[in-house]
Design a binder for these strands. Structure first.
Lengths: 154, 154
DNA sequence: TATTGTTATACTCTATAACTATA
DNA sequence: TATAGTTATAGAGTATAACAATA
């Protein structure tokens, strides 16, 4: 064994390397599917978040999906132009906005969710349920251990 | 159960979601460590690749690390400015270049590799070796099944 | 004509901070 | 003054394609 390989471990020795390798490909494959419907992954994440509630403030969205307020602002702009969401200033405190999906946005979301399901299945459906659960458990545990904040770019 | 949750599965139901969540944090944590030495993750990847050989053509590098030739060109520019690598036109075919680490680049690389080791340990050292191996095996298998190309942003 | 590497353009996402309007 | 949202700037990364030099 040369001194070179003894002092510098190969990239492939890191679990993080393999996670990112697969994760990047899963995300890229999903982004290709979304592009077929004119959507980006970031747009999907924001819409998915809004789907769970009636309305949300941009700052709350930023917190939930791990983006800056500036990023949320630009993203919301794009989605508003596409007719996917609306922004309404609060009556009580006009600094606040209520961001909400439009009927169009709410109608299209299940179709995007189906793409997400399909994409996940393409990469992981061949695994036994026990294996999938085990890996997800490990990942959840790591998130918990590190107190990680949301960066959901499914 | 509402119709809403019945038709749209939650993000957390996807294994891809958890992989990306953890993978993003591992990479971000590594990028912070590298920034302490004035390096980016992409720069680390390119240098790590060059460490394995004496010299490599930019086009070969692009293929190996999953970047475009344009991207490699810009990245190599930055690393050359930092004195980490040199570019030499081939004598036989002057279209070709030999990109190689400088002594400085080769000297600093083990220190960057140590950061990579440390970073991976921070996230995965608590796992049993069997668990780590199992997960890495699953990821390698997925890479093999999909014939995936390199996107090593460890 | 085909190929290598470079450069230019455009777009996404990030981070930081200045700016506005409201309170 | 503090906060919510917007806008501007700069940076790294991607993709595409035009380009020069070389074969």
């Amino acid at each position: 064994m040369s001194k070179r390989s003894a002092t510098v471990s190969p990239l492939e020795a890191h679990l993080g390397y393999w996670l990112r390798f697969v994760s990047n490909q899963v995300s890229h494959s999903f982004s290709v599917k979304l592009a077929g419907r004119g959507m980006s992954v970031a747009e999907w994440v924001m819409m998915r978040e809004l789907y769970e509630c009636d309305a949300m403030a941009p700052s709350a969205l930023a917190e939930r999906i791990g983006m800056t307020r500036g990023g949320v602002s630009k993203l919301a702009d794009r989605l508003a132009v596409k007719g996917m969401l609306t922004r309404t200033a609060s009556a009580e405190d006009r600094r606040y906005q209520a961001v909400a999906l439009t009927a169009k946005g709410r109608a299209i979301l299940p179709k995007l969710a189906a793409l997400a399901d399909q994409n996940d299945a393409e990469f992981f459906a061949h695994l036994k349920a026990v294996e999938r659960d085990k890996i997800a458990d490990v990942m959840r545990d790591i998130v918990r251990r590190h107190g990680l904040k949301a960066v959901p770019v499914d």
